[in-house]
Design a protein around this nucleic acid. Sequence first.
RNA 1: CGGGGUGUAGCGCAGUUUGGUAGCGCGCUGCGUUCGGGACGCAGAGGUCGUGGGUUCAAAUCCCGCCACCCCGACCA
Length: 486
Amino acid sequence: DFMLGPTHEEFFTLLVKDLYSSYKDLPLWLYQIQTKFRDEARPRAGLLRGREFVMKDSYSFDVDDAGLDRSYAAHREAYIRIFDRLGLDYVIVSALSGAMGGSKSEEFLTPASVGEDTYVRCTTCDYAANVEALRTLVPPALPYDDVPAAHVEDTPDTPTIETLVALANGRADLRRSDRDWTAADTLKNVVVKLRHPGGKSELLAIGLPGDRDVDAKRLEAVVHPAVVEPFTDGDFAENPGLVRGYIGPAALGSDKPAAVRYLLDPRVVEGTRWITGANEPGRHVFDLVTGRDFTADGTIEAATVFEGDPCPNGDGGSLVAARGIEMGHIFQLGRKFADALDLKVLDETGKQVVVTMGSYGIGPSRAIAAIAEATLDDIGLCWPRAVAPADLHVVATGKDDAVFEAAQALADDLVEQGIDVLYDDRRGVSPGVKFKDAELLGMPTIVVVGRGLHDGVVEVRDRRTGEREDVPVGEAVAHLVGVVRS
RNA sequence: CGGGGUGUAGCGCAGUUUGGUAGCGCGCUGCGUUCGGGACGCAGAGGUCGUGGGUUCAAAUCCCGCCACCCCGACCA
């Protein structure tokens, strides 16, 4: 969700129309790092989601689809290197490009229970996707030659799936011979209102297996930019064709009197056999077969995802869910924005063609929070070397002036070598306090100048492993430069 | 916007149920000892108890109003 405000539009227009107007100038990549603001209703979780944050975003411009693929792949590789160096666990998941209307999109997520994104991954292959972008594995159509004709039954006092299933299993004339009815045998039809940009409102019915619910996030993602509003008592009053609790396919669809657009969960394939509403209070239809007895206007991906659902790759694996923090997002915008901005260049044949764009973002300020969260241990922060505030933490211990002079000299020499040094020169503070502070701050290497000085050595500690090593004072600078640059 | 919680010394908190003139830890100041794993002794400083009103002989404590901050939800990179 990167903002393409007027400044972007003007800038892109200037770039492509006036400066880079030929295929010879492409691909063109540009990036910026800027402070952004988002009017969060309730900022929380510290740096993870503040009202103000630093954002790196970049854009690619190519003359054709193959070029966009190359630009996208190059950014993807760069992001992989960046996140590897940051020392973070991450997963790359398929995502929806959402508002940007692009064709391909992936997110870099750091697994974290505090994350705001839910994603699924396959237990046997490398498939991973944000739940919003998950494609349901469509089961094969079923034969229905021997399914009896649909029949309407009186099912009094069954406004919910639970009461309906209980009644069906409890009545001899409705009971199945092979097994009990379950909620998954019922077809639940949920009606919502969609508010389109510009204010136009539309009714949408979603038909899905009764053991599942409409997932608000998935629905919002697929209907974007329309906004989902609940179907209220007043709406029922205005639509007498929709009977609360007993809505069935017979009343739904653009071609029906109620003119409610009707979309089915992908699992509701031809030949599936359902118990569903008969559009009359207290009555349901049994043995209603998809394709034989009713059709819809299409399908929609909006049902809740269950752990154990089959992997969409169809290789027999199942899905598990996890939470993650979005650290980066790359996507292929395609030509939607370029079209709107009339961003054209000359191609090899001298024709004016619309460029195709990609967009790529990383949130550095939230990365700091996520790295800190992911790498800390029981005694404090534990910065990966690539992002540590300083390379070395030099600690002088004791009260001997010679210690402080040696520590200062060492720090000066290291700085001269281009090393970032944090030097604890506090006098009168006990060694234990200084060690604890150094561990808390979490520089990757801690150098102790203290009692070892009598033997001509300083102590070099690795913050993460706790390993300690005595190094002769004369070799300390060269040794430490090696440690930092390794 | 909905729900919940908290405001008492620089920081973290107890005290509020049952009204009786404010306490603990850390930090801070001074002196002495200590100095490689969050030192110790002695002596000190520091609070109109968020705010306005009410009840009472007496209010941090009870009652009413207001303000601020925090948490959960919705929303969000």
